[in-house]
C-alpha cells in the first residue's frame, strides 16, 4: 500500500513538472486555458476542503473567490498596492469572511446550510452590482488591474502568468496532501462521518468547522486574486450562483476528498466547455445530461477517494 501511495505522489509530481513546459508546446490561447485550469483547480480544491472533506454543503463558494478578486482589484486600482501584496490580503479577508459568515450557520444541518450559502451568494452579487460606496464598479466591475512583478520583473506575458498560477497550484496541492495526513484534516473527516461520535472523542465541531470554512475561503481568495490578474478585470457576473453550482458539481462529479477527482472534475467542467466554444448553444444542455449520467452511473464520483490504509 505504502509503495503504491508513493507512486501516486510521484506521478502527480511528474505531471505537474511536465505542466511547466506547456507554454513551450501550446499557442497563447491554449496557455491561457491552462492558466484558467490552474485557477479553477485551486478554487475547486478549496471547495473540496469545505464540501468534500468537512461535509458542509457550501453552495455559495463563488463568494470567497469573488472577495479575493475584488480585494485585489480594488486595492490595486485605487491604492496601487502591488499584486504580490494584495494576494495575502485577499486570502486573509476571504478567510475572515468565510469564518464570519459560517460562524452563525455552522450548527445548521445539510440542506439548510446549502440554502443559506445560496442566499449569501445572491446577496454578494447584488451588493457588487449595486456598487456600494462606489468601490466595486457596479455591473461593469473594475478594469485595469496590473500585473504582478517579481524581483523587479513584470510578469506580463501569458506564459509568465501561467507559471505563477501553476506554481501556486503546486503549492495548494501540497497543502491538500498534507491536510490528509494531519489532525485537522482527519478531524474534518470524523465530523463529516459522524458528528456525535467525533464530539465524544473531543473534536470541537464549531472550531474545526469554522477553521475549515476559513481555510477553504482563503484558498478561494488566492484563486480569486489570480483570476483578477489573469483577466485584468473583475465583474459580478464571474461570481454568480451558477459558478458556485459548478464548483459544487466538480467536487461531487470528480469525487469528494479526492485530489485527482477534483482535478479531473475541473478539467471536465471548465476546460472541456472552452474546447467546445463553437457549439456554445448545445454546451450546457449536454452538460446537464452529462451531470445526470455521471451521477446515475457513478454516484461516488469519477475518481473517488481511495480508502487510505495505515
Amino acid at each position: 500500500m505504502r509503495g503504491f501511495k508513493l507512486d501516486g505522489l510521484k506521478l502527480g509530481a511528474l505531471l505537474w513538472a511536465a505542466g511547466l513546459a506547456l507554454p513551450f508546446a501550446l499557442d497563447s490561447s491554449w496557455v491561457s486555458i491552462a492558466a484558467f485550469f490552474a485557477i479553477y483547480a485551486i478554487t475547486a480544491l478549496s471547495e473540496d476542503v469545505i464540501l468534500g472533506r468537512a461535509g458542509m454543503f457550501d453552495m455559495g463558494h463563488a463568494v470567497y473567490f469573488g472577495i479575493g478578486a475584488y480585494v485585489t482589484a480594488i486595492l490595486n486600482t485605487t491604492l496601487n498596492v502591488p499584486i504580490l501584496l494584495t494576494l495575502p490580503l485577499a486570502m486573509l479577508l476571504a478567510a475572515a469572511a468565510g469564518a464570519l459568515l459560517s460562524a452563525p450557520l455552522i450548527r445548521l444541518r445539510g440542506d439548510y446550510l446549502l440554502v443559506a450559502t445560496i442566499g449569501f451568494n445572491a446577496i454578494f452579487v447584488l451588493a457588487m452590482q449595486n456598487n456600494p460606496g462606489g468601490i466595486t464598479g457596479g455591473s461593469d466591475g473594475i478594469t485595469g488591474i496590473g500585473v504582478p512583478s517579481l524581483f523587479g520583473l513584470q510578469l506580463e506575458s501569458q506564459s509568465a502568468m501561467f507559471w505563477l498560477d501553476w506554481v501556486l497550484l503546486g503549492l495548494v496541492l501540497l497543502v491538500m496532501r498534507n491536510l490528509d495526513a494531519c489532525e485537522f484534516g482527519r478531524a474534518l473527516r470524523y465530523l463529516k462521518q459522524d458528528e456525535l461520535a467525533a464530539s465524544t472523542l473531543g473534536v470541537d465541531a464549531r472550531k474545526v468547522k469554522t477553521l475549515a470554512f476559513a481555510l477553504g475561503a482563503a484558498l478561494a481568495g488566492l484563486a480569486g486574486t489570480l483570476f483578477a490578474v489573469q483577466l485584468s478585470t473583475v465583474s459580478p457576473s464571474s461570481f454568480v450562483f451558477t459558478e458556485s453550482v459548478t464548483l459544487f458539481a466538480i467536487v461531487i462529479v470528480g469525487g469528494q476528498g479526492s485530489i485527482p477527482g477534483v482535478l479531473l472534475g475541473t478539467a471536465l467542467m471548465f476546460v472541456v466547455p472552452q474546447i467546445f466554444r463553437g457549439l456554445a448553444e448545445y454546451r450546457y444542455f449536454v452538460f446537464g445530461i452529462a451531470m445526470i449520467a455521471v451521477m446515475v452511473l457513478r454516484p461516488q464520483g469519477l475518481l473517488p477517494r481511495r480508502r487510505s490504509a495505515a
Binding site: 459544487f248 458539481a249 461531487i252 450546457y284 444542455f285 452538460f287 446537464g288 445530461i289 451531470m291 451521477m295
Partner: peptide, 14 residues
C-alpha cells in the same frame, strides 16, 4: 441526487 437535480435543471433550461 443534488448534483443530478442541478444537471436536470441545466438540461431543461438549455
Amino acid at each position: 441526487a443534488v448534483v443530478s437535480a442541478l444537471g436536470a435543471s441545466l438540461m431543461i433550461e438549455n
